Simulated scan of single mutants.
Amino acid sequence: MYKKKLALMLSMILCISFMSGYKAMPFQLNKAEAAATFAKGADVSWLSEMESYNWSFYNSNGTKQDLLQILKDKGMDSVRLRVWVNPSLNFSNKADVVKQAVRAKKMGLRIMIDFHYSDTWADPGKQAKPAAWSSKSLAELNQAVYDHTYDVLNTLKSNGVTAEWVQVGNETNDGMLWQDGKASSNMKNFAQLITSGYKAVKAVNSSSKVIVHLSNGYDNSLFRWMFDGLSANGAKYDVIGMSLYPSQTDWSTLDTQALANMNDMVARYGKEVMVCEVGMDVTAPAQAKSFLTDIIAKTKSVSGGKGLGVFYWEPESYGTWYEYTKGAFDSSGKPTAALDAFKN
Rank of each mutant, 00 (worst) to 15 (best):
G175A: 06
V201A: 00
A183L: 09
H213K: 08
A132P: 13
V168A: 12
A203W: 06
K126I: 10
E171G: 04
T195H: 03
H148C: 12
V204M: 07
K136S: 09
V212D: 01
A203Q: 13
L141A: 00
S184A: 03
Y150F: 14
I211K: 12
S134M: 09
S207L: 14
H148A: 12
W178K: 06
W165C: 01
N205G: 02
V145Y: 00
L141P: 07
T162F: 05
N173K: 05
Q179W: 10
G125R: 12
N154V: 13
A191C: 14
N154F: 05
A191H: 08
P130D: 03
P124V: 08
D119F: 06
E140T: 12
G197F: 11
N154R: 09
S135N: 11
H213L: 04
N159I: 06
E140M: 01
N205V: 00
E171H: 04
T172K: 05
D219H: 06
S184M: 05
V166R: 04
F190H: 00
K188F: 13
D123Y: 15
S185D: 13
D151Q: 09
V210N: 11
G125C: 05
S221L: 04
T149I: 14
A203F: 15
Y198V: 05
D123M: 04
Q167T: 11
S208Y: 05
V145Q: 00
I194S: 00
M176W: 03
K209H: 05
Q179H: 09
N173Y: 13
S215P: 09
V212G: 04
T195E: 01
N173W: 12
A132R: 10
D174M: 05
V161T: 02
N189V: 07
I194Q: 04
T195K: 00
G175N: 08
A139T: 14
E164G: 15
N189E: 11
S137H: 06
Y198E: 02
V201H: 01
V161C: 03
L193P: 10
L141N: 01
N216R: 11
H213E: 03
A163R: 11
T195D: 02
K136D: 13
S206K: 15
K136T: 06
N159M: 07
D147T: 12
S135P: 07
D174A: 08
Q127Y: 00
D119V: 11
N159K: 15
T172P: 06
I211D: 13
S207R: 14
N216H: 08
N205D: 15
A139Q: 09
N142E: 13
Y218S: 11
L156Y: 03
A122W: 07
W178H: 02
S118Q: 02
V152D: 04
E164W: 10
K157S: 13
G175S: 08
D174N: 13
K129H: 05
N220V: 10
S158R: 09
N216L: 05
